[in-house]
Structure formats: C-alpha cells, structure tokens
Amino acid sequence: MKKVKVLMLRAPGTNRDIDTRIAFEQCGAEADSALVNELLRQEKRLMDYQILVIPGGFTYGDDISAGKIMANEIRPKLKEDILKFVADGRLVLGICNGFQVLVKTGILPGIKGKSAQPVTLTNNDSGKFECRWVYLKVNEKSPCIFTKGMRGMYVPIAHGEGKLVAEPGIAEKLNIVVQYVDEKFKTQAGYPYNPNGSINDIAGICDASGRIFGLMPHAEDFIRWTQHPRWTRETPREDLYGLQIFQNAVAWAKGI
C-alpha cells in the first residue's frame, strides 16, 4: 500500500519539523518539507500530499507577533490553495507556531467574525515563554478527525504567546478540541495547569469539518514513554501519548 504523504510547511525559523517528522514516520507516513516559496514557485505541489502540517518554531523570529509574518505571507498567496486542499477531504494540522499561523491567516476557526481574524493567540498572562508539561482533556463531541477516540493527553508546551482570545460572540461558537485541565482532568484549574491564561482553558480548536486542527501543546514530543517527565517513577500510560493524533491523521489519510 502506498504511504501517506505529509508536507511540513516551513518558513525561516521553523524548528519542530524534526520532532513532527519523527512522529509521522513512527506512524508509517512519509514526511517531506517545503518552504512557502517552494510551493509558490510550484517546485512542490500541495496536492501531492494528504496531510499539511505547519510545525512549531519561531518563524521570522516571532517578530511583530508569533506567526504573524508567515501568516501574512500565506494569506494572499496560499490560503485559497489550503482551503481547497481541505475541501478535497485532506487534513491540515498546525502545532504551536503553526496554530498561531492558522489563526492569524483566519484559516482557523473558519468562522465569520467582525474581522478577517476573529481569534488570536497572544502573550501568556505570565509574560514569559514557558516550557512545561500540561494535561489536556479531549472534547469527545468535537468533529476533530485528529482526536477521534481520544480522551486526554499529557504533553509539553513551549511558548510565550499561547493565550487564546476571541472577538466578542465568537468564543461560544468555537469548536474546542482540547482544553488545559488538572491531573484529575478538571477544567478551570488555573495557572500553571492552564499555562497561558487562555479563555475557557482552550489549548486547541478545529474548523467545522474537523479536518483543520490547531493546538499549542507539542503532541509530537510525547511519542515514547521515556519522554514523560516522570517515566522513572510511574507506570507507562500510552493512552496519554500525543502520538495518537498522528496515528488518527495517518489512518484518515489512508482513506483519501
């Protein structure tokens, strides 16, 4: 059977393409990468892939605000192609900086608001970049393809601008996929469980089709037990792996 093909879309400063590639390869997919320019010059074609990922990193150094310059680059030149890609049944995933890009292009949440970008990801309430592990509760009612059958995750975050804020009236309409919770999977646990002050503890959202998914936490960084911060003292919990997201995506893409 032909391997599922994943395209990792890069810009200067993308860096979690390494981790993302390993996660997809562990799920049997083939991961390729391209700079935005390579797609614009048609050296690589989006439609040759089933999954598009915008990995984490610091594209253009987070200048102005995280993901802004890359979003500004994609919006006029590539956004339509990406929407067509999804309309064709394919999948789009944005992790951390990739989520910021999807939100700042307006591709997520895909809801019409007052402005072209009704949701934003902005400075953490702590005012700091933070790297810490967080518990995530999966909204089992969400249409999200990536989280089918999942209940939760325990994965690291590593960001300075992950606080989700929405235009008035938009928050209620969001397709929430994952929320920050405490170790008992309760929401409204406060800092540091919710590491950035995101409204409604939102860690990730999807569009109405469930095929575009963006999240701040690095699901790609919990794909083996020895990555867990307490693996030397606890019994393995594969049900909390971030890897499931990639498995779900690859399984879906096989059906395309």
């Binding site: 981790d19 984490g56 700091k128 790297c131 690291p156 790609e220 794909i223 990555q227 911060p229």
Partner: peptide, 18 residues
C-alpha cells in the same frame, strides 16, 4: 522553565524531575 528543553523530542532526563 524559560528554556525549551523539549524541542527535537530527544529528552530523557530533564533538568527538573520528580
């Protein structure tokens, strides 16, 4: 905490444990 010690997905023993 203000350093990313997870990127590249290679960590086994982190600077903070327990």
């Amino acid at each position: 905490r203000q350093y990313d010690h997870e990127v590249q997905g290679t960590s086994v023993l982190k600077p903070l444990v327990g």
